[in-house]
Structure formats: C-alpha cells, structure tokens
Amino acid sequence: MIALDDLDRAILRALVEDASQSAGALGRALGLSQPACWRRIRRLEEAGVIAGRRLDLDQAALGFGVTVFLGIKLATRGRVSLEDFERAVTAIPEVQVVQHVLGRFDYRLRVTARDIADFERVLRRRVMTLPGVGQVEANVLLSEERRPGPLG
C-alpha cells in the first residue's frame, strides 16, 4: 500500500472527475508544475492506485435504454461449474459486468438491452441457457447516481 498525501488525493479526485485532463492542466489547477504532477500520476499508476482510465459511454444515447441487474444462483456447485458459467457469461455482449458474490446469489450481472423485449430475449436465449443456472432474480435500474469512492 502506498502512502497518499493531500496532493495525491487532490490529483485522484480531479482525475475521477475528468480522467482526460493533462498533467499540465491538472498541475496548474493544483499549483504544481507539469513534470511534478506527471511524476505523481506515474507513481500512483505504478503503485496500482490508478488502475486505468476508462471511457464512460451513455448507454441510452447508444440505444440501450434498459439496464437490469440479475442475481444468479447456480443449481450446481463446484469448480468446473463456476468456470464453465464464467466463461459462458462473459461471452454475452449484453452482460456488461460479472461479479462473483457472497450471499443469496452466486453472481450479480449488469445487463444492458435496447428495451424490455430485448432484455427478455437476452434472458431467455442467453442467460437461462448458461451452464449451471438455477435461480434468477431481475432488478430493473430506474436511475443511477455516480459517486466516486472514498479517497481517505
């Protein structure tokens, strides 16, 4: 674990807000030179604190107006079943996130679809036919608010 000072946290907060900022612009905003800011960002990347920078797409603008969270309980347990399920579910393009979780379900999936009829097609033809699928529970996303994680 790397020790973070106030400048490191300020850099992380600024990058969470807009990851496309240059080290020069970020440095100016924080009272650092471009090279000093770049070195700090590089150090945070090398330590694994910054794991990457992602492009955030607007699913609705792309025609995907429905997001559904699925809880999946596998009918059979065992290493082969988990591996088979994970390999098959990650091949479904509408499945955006696969999380192996503890609790009532074994997996939590984030699925995007054009509309409810499209989601039903994905559920019936792709998800329900996956190896080991037992119980499935769906929760339709009504709204979402983005909250960056704590920075200490």
Score class of each variant (00 low, 15 high):
133 V>M: 10
55 L>I: 07
88 A>N: 13
68 V>A: 05
26 L>F: 04
28 R>D: 14
115 D>G: 06
1 M>G: 14
44 L>T: 09
59 Q>P: 06
88 A>P: 13
101 V>Q: 04
108 R>G: 10
58 D>E: 12
110 R>K: 13
117 A>F: 03
50 I>E: 04
4 L>Y: 01
47 A>W: 01
43 R>Q: 11
85 F>M: 11
145 E>K: 04
136 V>T: 14
65 G>Q: 13
50 I>L: 12
130 L>D: 05
110 R>F: 01
51 A>H: 01
129 T>Q: 12
143 S>L: 02
12 L>N: 03
119 F>C: 13
116 I>W: 15
7 L>V: 15
124 R>I: 08
82 L>H: 12
114 R>E: 07
7 L>Q: 13
104 R>S: 07
94 E>M: 02
119 F>T: 08
28 R>N: 11
18 D>R: 06
104 R>C: 00
109 L>R: 11
97 V>E: 14
112 T>S: 09
105 F>C: 03
27 G>A: 07
138 A>D: 09
25 A>S: 09
37 C>Q: 03
148 P>N: 10
127 V>Q: 07
11 I>M: 15
60 A>K: 10
123 L>M: 11
118 D>M: 12
104 R>F: 08
65 G>S: 13
40 R>K: 15
43 R>K: 13
40 R>S: 07
86 E>L: 11
115 D>R: 01
1 M>V: 07
97 V>W: 00
78 G>I: 11
80 V>Y: 09
103 G>P: 08
8 D>P: 07
57 L>Q: 04
86 E>Y: 06
58 D>S: 15
58 D>G: 05
46 E>T: 15
150 P>S: 14
86 E>S: 12
35 P>S: 10
91 A>E: 15
29 A>D: 11
57 L>I: 10
59 Q>W: 12
117 A>E: 06
106 D>E: 01
120 E>C: 13
111 V>M: 02
71 G>A: 03
60 A>P: 01
77 R>C: 03
139 N>V: 10
10 A>P: 04
102 L>W: 08
89 V>Y: 10
19 A>Q: 05
88 A>W: 13
123 L>R: 13
54 R>Q: 13
87 R>F: 09
150 P>A: 14
75 A>E: 14
134 G>K: 04
90 T>A: 14
148 P>I: 02
115 D>L: 12
98 V>Q: 10
95 V>D: 08
137 E>C: 03
32 L>H: 04
106 D>N: 02
89 V>K: 10
95 V>T: 10
9 R>A: 05
31 G>L: 10
33 S>G: 14
142 L>C: 05
17 E>Y: 09
150 P>F: 12
57 L>K: 08
18 D>K: 03
51 A>Y: 00
29 A>G: 15
34 Q>G: 01
99 Q>I: 01
62 L>V: 08
34 Q>V: 00
32 L>A: 08
30 L>F: 08
65 G>D: 15
22 S>N: 00
70 L>T: 07
94 E>H: 02
14 A>T: 07
5 D>G: 15
